[in-house]
């Protein structure tokens, strides 16, 4: 086989075409969704000129407003709690010597990633209904705790990765200088850990903001979040208002993900 100068060892026939098509496919539906959210006509398929009317009608829709506020409250609370819990778990699995039972801890932390969401949702429906009947409390905390649980692994991964990648000399030096473990953590570990914590919190926030299935099963009276509200609407009236809400939610997710991306890159 003769190989000229231009021979590219990395080339595989057709791969580039498939890859570029893949990117088109990934973005075409989303782009169409965004474009049609600015459509003036009531139809979701025919273009009737540029307009912001669907954004306006979404903004004025009381149920959308309430669902949005509720989504943000749940996502904020769940991401703060999950990140706090994840920092502890990450420290325990990186800053102490390996111990027996570590595998169990990993299994429990990663459980929400492995067990199908619908199974957890069913379990929580039954369990929380029992508690609700026993205590009479029906507030938002059920959703917050449920969201916190499945957000923990998402916060845990970037934080643990950051801890593993950190230089231990400074922490050891602090310990040699008689800093208490807490002082060492606050003054030495935490400042280096911040990008990991922020990344973890943002991931947790996006995950919570997007959840449909568990929320749908756990929610009580008047506790629709933006995604469950949309799911309810999808089966009835498909107006471009849903496109507008989607686009707004999309923008939030994209901003957070890009921030996450650059934060987690910054360590390299």
């Amino acid at each position: 086989m003769a190989r000229g100068k231009g021979f590219d060892v990395t080339r595989q026939p057709g791969f580039t075409t498939v890859a570029l098509l893949c990117f088109v496919m990934l973005y075409l539906p989303i782009v169409l969704l965004v474009v049609f959210s600015f459509n003036d006509s009531t139809s979701v398929a025919e273009w009737g000129g540029f307009s912001l009317r669907w954004y306006q009608s979404a903004l004025e829709n009381e149920r959308v407003q309430e669902a949005t506020i509720r989504s943000v409250i749940i996502a904020t609370a769940a991401s703060i709690l999950a990140t706090g819990a994840a920092v502890g778990a990450a420290l325990a699995t990186t800053r102490t010597r390996p111990w027996r039972g570590q595998t169990v801890v990993f299994a429990i932390v990663n459980q929400p990633l492995m067990v199908p969401e619908i199974v957890t949702a069913v379990a929580l429906l039954i369990f929380f209904a029992m508690i609700k009947v026993a205590t009479g409390y029906t507030g938002l905390w059920y959703l917050i705790i449920a969201h916190t649980a499945f957000c923990i692994p998402f916060a845990f991964l970037p934080i643990r990765a950051r801890l593993q990648g950190m230089d231990l000399t400074l922490e050891q030096a602090a310990a040699d200088l008689y800093a208490t473990p807490w002082q060492a953590f606050r003054r030495v570990t935490l400042p280096q850990l911040w990008p990991g914590i922020l990344a973890g919190a943002m991931l947790a926030f996006v995950i919570s903001l997007d959840d449909v299935v568990i929320t749908e099963f756990v929610k009580s009276a008047g506790q629709d979040t933006l995604p469950t509200y949309m799911l309810g609407q999808l089966r009835r009236v498909v107006t471009p208002e849903i496109n507008a809400i989607s686009t707004a939610l999309l923008a939030v997710s994209v901003l957070l993900v890009m921030a996450f991306f650059f934060l987690s890159r910054s360590r390299k």
Binding site: I30, S246, L250, V254
Partner: peptide, 13 residues
């Protein structure tokens, strides 16, 4: 990281 519901909805459209 985009909402699964939104992506499903986009496919539907």
């Amino acid at each position: 990281w985009t909402n699964l519901l939104i992506r499903t909805f986009a496919i539907m459209e």
